[in-house]
Design a protein around this nucleic acid. Structure first.
Ligand SMILES: [Mn+2]
Ligand SMILES: [Mn+2]
Ligand SMILES: [Zn+2]
Ligand SMILES: [Zn+2]
Lengths: 136, 136
DNA sequence: ACATTTATGCAACATAGTTGCAGAAATGTT
DNA sequence: AACATTTCTGCAACTATGTTGCATAAATGT
C-alpha cells in the first residue's frame, strides 16, 4: 500500500484510492489487461475515471501499452526504469492463442533488425503468438 | 481488371465490382489502410459492405491484418503464397511516426526468438517505428 | 486551517464494429 | 438464354470502445 503510494509519487502522480486499486490489480493479474478487465474488477469505479487512470499511469511510466492482435488497448506494468520522460519497454510479448492471455517477457529483448537505407528506427514491438506453458 | 478477377477466383471468392475496387485501392496505396481509408476512397459503397469485404479478403488470404499501435484495424495485400487455409505473412512492418504510414517490409523476415521452456510459437508480428525514407 | 491544484463522477457525445434481413447480383445447370 | 441456388449488397438497428465538458470531491503545499 505504502509501496504503491511511493511508486505514484516518484512518477509525479497524486496518491488516490483508485490508482492504488488499479495498480494492485495489475500486480495480481501479472498479464496484460484491458480497460474492460479493470472495469470488471472494480465495478463501482466510474468508466471514465478508469480510462483516465490508465492514461495517467501510462503517461507517467508506470504501465505501458501492450500491442496485440485484438483492437482493444491492453496495458501491463513497466519495469523500474520507466518514467514520464521515457519508456524503456523494448521486450517481447507473448500471446497464447488458447487462453488468450498476453504476457510480458521482460528478459527477452527485441533484436536489432537491419533495414534498407533511409529508415531510422526509434522503437519496436514484437508479439509472438502460440501456446503458453499452462496451456501446452 | 481481369487480373483482379483471377485473384478473387483463385481464392474462392465471387468477382464483384466492390471487391475489385477495394483491391485496386490497396494496389494504389501500397501501404496499410484502414476501413475508414477505404470508405473515404469509395464513399458510395455501404459501410457494412466494406467491413464485410475486408473480412472476406482477409479470410481468403488476399489481404492480411497489419498490427500497429493505433487501435483501428489496418490491412495490406498478402504475398502470392497466402490462401484461405494459411497466411504466410511473417515479415516486418514499419510505421513512420511523422507521416503515420505503415508499410510491409516483405523482404525482412521476423527473426527466430528463443523462448524459455514451455512456450511454443506459431507466428509473430514485428512492428518497427521511426522515420521513413520520405520523411527523413 | 486554508488556498490551490488535480481527480472523480456524471451526462452527453463520438467513433468503430456487428447483426438481421430483404432485395440484387453472381454462379452453376439445363 | 432461362432458371434455381448461392452469395453479396445496402439499410436499419444495435453494441462496444473511447472522448469531452463540467461540477463536485479529494489531495497537496503553505
Ligand atoms: Mn510488456
Ligand atoms: Mn504486411
Ligand atoms: Zn495459454
Ligand atoms: Zn514517413
Amino acid at each position: 500500500m505504502a509501496d504503491l503510494n511511493h511508486i505514484l509519487k516518484t512518477h509525479g502522480l497524486r496518491t488516490t484510492a483508485i490508482r492504488r486499486e488499479v495498480m494492485q490489480y495489475f500486480l495480481n493479474e501479472g498479464k496484460a489487461v484491458s480497460h474492460q478487465d479493470v472495469e470488471g474488477a472494480m465495478p463501482k469505479a466510474d468508466r471514465v475515471t478508469l480510462y483516465r487512470t490508465l492514461a495517467a499511469l501510462e503517461e507517467s511510466g508506470i504501465i505501458h501499452q501492450v500491442i496485440d492482435d485484438d483492437t482493444v488497448k491492453k496495458y501491463a506494468l513497466c519495469g523500474t526504469e520507466c518514467s514520464g520522460d521515457h519508456h524503456h519497454d523494448n521486450h517481447v510479448h507473448f500471446k497464447c492463442e488458447r487462453c488468450n492471455d498476453t504476457v510480458c517477457l521482460e528478459d527477452i529483448k527485441i533484436p536489432h533488425i537491419n533495414l534498407p537505407q533511409g529508415y531510422s528506427v526509434d522503437s519496436g514491438n514484437l508479439l509472438l503468438m502460440g501456446t503458453c506453458k499452462s496451456c501446452a
